[in-house]
Design a protein around this nucleic acid. Structure first.
Lengths: 209, 209
DNA sequence: CTGGATCCCTCACGATACTG
DNA sequence: CAGTATCGTGAGGGATCCAG
């Protein structure tokens, strides 16, 4: 069962040998936001067979990119190792490219709010953040996630933040795509939300958000 | 002939829909260094069938990433569009990851010196370059390429540079992997080559070069 | 009920022969 | 030299089945 390889002594080809298989990078994407369970991954990656998901998880574990987290209340969590977390830089680069040059969003395609969380981080500009320190909580009926800016760095997570300065009663898309007047903060100042938003920008092309 | 798609409204998935197929990113890698002809690409991507190469070229052209360059002395050149060139940032990120965390180089694997040219660019640190301005020519029996640093920016190319400050009688690997004493400059000062080399560093991990 | 293995069918890929 | 045509193989996709 010799795994298929490009057999090239080139860093890009070697990276592709490891994370170039179908679904692999999307798996890493999901795990970049938070550790996940098998079923959560299966739901996010609609269309993947359970056999393929299982196979990819084993391959990426063997490659030292993900690891089984067995302790705690749930068994079988999957998270990223250091090597896996190091992929974030490359993933965010690809996200930026996808936003600027990729195809438009399609009706009928699957969508998850945690992907927007990652996309938002991809658009973060440290210089624009300045000394801003804020934590924004996004909250709808079927999604809860937060993003915090501090010391020109971004952190994010699912669920409820420990202490949010602004609580938005809507999704990330609602906030960034909607009209400026219609910013729902059920808690916190609109001005702080405005400063939060100004720390993000899409380089190279402003056509799409 | 509905092309296979992840059908996710996520920038990474959309990017993967376009450049995630097998060989696609390696094709872009080769074209990042220089426009190429069909036969050159086929030789670089050992193992690709001519039908697949042809198919990938058409797909990437349809996606607006590459373009046929028909004018000039040769017909049938392939080069990158603006959207294609914009992939360089992401490709270099993946190269850095591959260098730091990917598998070791394997004996028997294919190797080309122009790949090292791209890898070298991936390791460039603008801050370390300072006001350095230099053009280094690498030259062996079966390879000629150059890299220039100016205004904290890198340019590179195949063949002979217009005006080289340093001419190295060896490959990039020879220079960076070899012992410091054994730096062959058939022309130019070893000191300038040393300053050139000091502008490159692998972040995160120093284990491998 | 969740996590995962097993089967089968389809199509993308890889190799080669062939054509303009 | 630049592709197209053809065909065998194996990875991917989907359903079902099994274990804890």
């Amino acid at each position: 069962m010799a795994k298929r390889s490009y057999k090239q002594n080139c860093a890009l080809a070697q990276a592709s040998d490891v994370i170039g298989d179908r679904w692999s990078l999307l798996l890493v994407r999901d795990l970049l936001v938070s550790p996940r369970r098998f079923g959560e991954l299966q739901q996010s990656l609609r269309g993947i067979g359970t056999n393929l998901l299982s196979s990819r998880l084993r391959e990426l574990e063997a490659a030292g990119i993900i690891e089984r987290l067995d302790g705690g209340e749930f068994r079988h969590h999957y998270g990223l190792t250091e090597a896996g977390k190091a992929l974030e830089v490359a993933v965010l680069s690809l996200v930026r490219w996808g936003l600027a040059y990729g195809p438009e969003n399609q009706k009928g395609y699957h969508h998850q709010n945690d992907w927007d969380l990652l996309a938002l981080k991809a658009l973060f500009q440290a210089k624009r953040a300045g000394d801003l320190s804020v934590c924004v909580q996004f909250k709808t009926d079927d999604f809860a996630g937060w993003m915090a800016i501090e010391n020109q760095r971004v952190r994010m997570g699912l669920g409820e933040a420990d202490s949010a300065d602004v609580i938005v009663d809507g999704t990330i898309k609602d906030v960034f795509d909607g009209p400026p007047s219609n910013r729902l903060c059920s808690s916190g100042s609109k001005e702080k939300l405005q400063r939060f938003m100004s720390a993000f920008v899409l380089p190279a092309q402003a056509e799409r958000v």
